[in-house]
């Protein structure tokens, strides 16, 4: 709540600072997020990349405070515009959810209610956040939105039930539902992973257009580096509960600075020579049961040094917009990270 007093003049829309999330399970406490910090500017698309269990979805859900027991947000701050989402009361958080921040899930068919007509579901999204609206005008707006989404025969489609639609069409409805309230931030959790490539191309093109129209920021979560390269302005690569590298998309993908990012890019088979074995990062993802006390990638890292298994690497700043948490860059200036964001000048 420090920010209450200072006038907000930065163009930062969202700033996550030192976020820690734990899950209490049968085997002990899983340290799912160990101090995640990043920020998202207005009208920017930030990609969160990483593999299963790295914490990218947990990060996204934390932003909406959707962590259910046995999970718990232990510490950190999530500043959205000038409010800390973690200290707001439930009513205020509900107003933000779906209104100012919307979220698209991976499985469109599972995110739509099977017994309600899709047009009504889109209208419902409007009605929740705008009580002055009546049902019929909400319906009309919903249909307009569907037309804008390039859905043929919007009126007829809006009268259909989710099971009557294809996966691609269902995802369009989902996107319409999430964007109809013109949110400031759209969280897209693997929006095209369940779709075929030709449909994925359609959806990505559509999202791109709408995001431009509505001028919303996007937090794009994906494991597909190709999708990331095409849609994001900046990317953050996560590994085992940490952001290990962050920067402009071109700089991260062309000139990766963290060994994990380098490895990840090399494992993609698209351009690999079929006569050679694929590059594979050795070993497995570490258990998150122990609190972090060293670089969690050190066991699998080609360049691991003695200190890597003793200390947590700080975030080193390579260029203005490229940082990596790796001792290989010792000597570079240490990034302030998101931790001092509230002291920064506009």
């Amino acid at each position: 709540m420090l920010l209450k007093d200072t006038p907000v003049t930065t163009d930062k829309l969202l700033s996550v600072q030192d976020l820690r999330v734990h899950f209490h399970t049968l085997r002990g406490i899983v340290h799912a997020l160990e101090g995640v910090s990043f920020h998202l500017n207005r009208q920017e698309t930030l990609g969160l990349a990483g593999e299963t269990g790295c914490g990218k979805s947990v990060t996204a859900r934390s932003v909406l405070r959707l962590i259910d027991p046995p999970g718990r947000i232990v510490s950190g701050r999530i500043i959205f515009e000038d409010r800390d989402i973690l200290t707001l009361d439930d009513t205020a958080v509900r107003a933000i959810r779906g209104g100012e921040i919307s979220m698209i899930m991976q499985e469109p068919k599972m995110s739509l209610n099977p017994v309600i007509r899709v047009g009504d579901q889109v209208a419902e999204a409007l009605l929740i956040h705008d009580t002055s609206l009546n049902r019929s005008s909400a319906r009309t707006q919903a249909e307009e939105m569907l037309t804008q989404m390039g859905i043929p025969e919007a009126h007829r489609t809006s009268r259909r039930y989710p099971h009557e639609l294809s996966g691609g069409m269902a995802q369009r409805i989902m996107i319409a539902m999430m964007l109809v309230t013109r949110p400031k931030l759209l969280i897209a959790d693997e929006p095209t992973s369940a779709l075929d490539v030709t449909i994925q191309a359609q959806i990505l093109a559509l999202m791109d257009k709408l995001v431009q129209d509505i001028r919303t920021s996007v937090l794009m979560i994906t494991h597909d580096l190709g999708v990331m390269a095409e849609t994001c302005d900046r990317v953050a690569v996560m590994y085992a509960g940490n952001i290990v590298e962050m920067g402009a998309v071109r700089s991260v993908l062309k000139d990766p600075q963290h060994p994990y990012t380098q490895g990840l890019l090399k494992t993609v088979p698209d351009k690999a020579n079929p006569d050679h074995p694929l590059y594979a990062i050795k070993g497995n993802v570490p258990s998150l049961l122990q609190p972090q006390n060293h670089c969690r990638f050190s066991d699998r890292c080609e360049y691991a040094m003695a200190r890597c298994s003793r200390e947590i690497p700080p975030v080193y700043q390579m260029t203005d917009d490229h940082e990596a948490a790796c001792f290989l860059h010792d000597g570079q200036s240490i990034s302030s990270g998101g931790k001092q964001v509230d002291l920064m000048n506009p």
Binding site: V197, I199, L225, K254
Partner: peptide, 21 residues
């Protein structure tokens, strides 16, 4: 052409198909 490339420099000259299969 639909396959997204991990190389940010590859120009995307994709053909978008109309409709669903």
């Amino acid at each position: 052409s639909s396959l997204p490339s991990i190389d940010p420099d590859t120009p995307s000259n994709r053909t978008l198909l109309e409709g669903d299969p």
